[in-house]
Design a protein around this nucleic acid. Structure first.
Lengths: 149, 149
DNA sequence: CTAATGCTTGCAATGGAAGTGCAATTATTG
DNA sequence: CAATAATTGCACTTCCATTGCAAGCATTAG
């Protein structure tokens, strides 16, 4: 796939180094998708990415995201809309590590889902015999932009 | 649809009264599905119900569950598997009321999802400007039955 | 530099779950 | 019993997730 590289080269170099550190190949598609995610403040669906890159194949986007997920570059968010969303992991975010989970906010008005990375999930107690490995917490309501009006 | 009523009649009468109090009609299908849910300790998917009542149409099961949901007889659970699950509301469970939310536990081993009705969700703080209306919390790990071995 | 290898991409197709329109059936009410 | 309203079953449709295979491109060994 040929793309016009109208994107910041300095940034790109950094991303390339980042990809190398994650031991994945640097491809145009991956760079573009990474950049797209980095520019968004909200979690996106596969369809969002699809619409942003209409020339690319859905499968490629899908597998790119899956690759990112495996390498802990993005994390999946299940916000209860039924559609899986994705967002870049923050610096130092260790999504694989159970204790590092932040919560997600889903706005019922604008339908956007945001990572509240500063808001760690409190310790949840589970009954005797249960072993907690992972916690998913989604708060639904009205986001700051929608409530401000 | 004709069904063999090989089920406890005394129970059935109670369920009928319950349905009446919820202002929904008593039908064979609804009684059977309610009984099915009551006998399960875990949240079930539409497919689970489908497999249990192979003679019934999927649409009927689907709409029955939707009716139950509207009348706050069952509540939906989104446990992150991507498939919506349902469980009976407990006595006094007010799923419509945001403050009454309990957490759910999803076992990564047996793949079952359980309502931990005794475990209320702690108050979650959201940033300035955000309005919390609803909280969904799913803990994943190993359940008591699977960890006991 | 070139060939061999392996990862990446695109196309086509599949599968599963959710949801809807309509007609037929069943229950309720007057 | 007749009229009305709710419920059920069938046939589709839509949408998202996922996979197999072949072609293309990048990396490595020689």
């Amino acid at each position: 796939m040929k793309v016009v590289m109208d994107i910041n080269y300095i940034n790109m170099n950094e991303i390339e180094k980042f990809f190398a550190s994650k031991k994945i190949r640097v491809t145009a598609m991956r760079l573009l998708i990474y950049k797209f995610l980095a520019e968004k403040e909200v979690a996106v669906t596969l369809s969002d990415i699809e619409n942003a890159f209409e020339k690319a194949d859905r499968t490629t986007l899908y597998r790119t995201i899956k690759t990112f997920e495996e390498k802990a570059i993005v994390h999946q968010i299940d916000d209860g809309t039924g559609i899986t969303k994705y967002a870049l992991c923050e610096k130092g975010c260790n999504c694989e590590i159970e204790t590092d989970l932040h919560l997600h906010f889903h706005c019922n008005n604008c339908n956007k889902t945001i990572c509240l990375t500063d808001h760690k999930i409190p310790q949840i107690k589970v009954p005797e015999g249960f072993i907690s490995e992972n916690v998913n917490l989604v708060v639904k309501g009205i986001c700051d932009k929608c409530s401000g009006q």
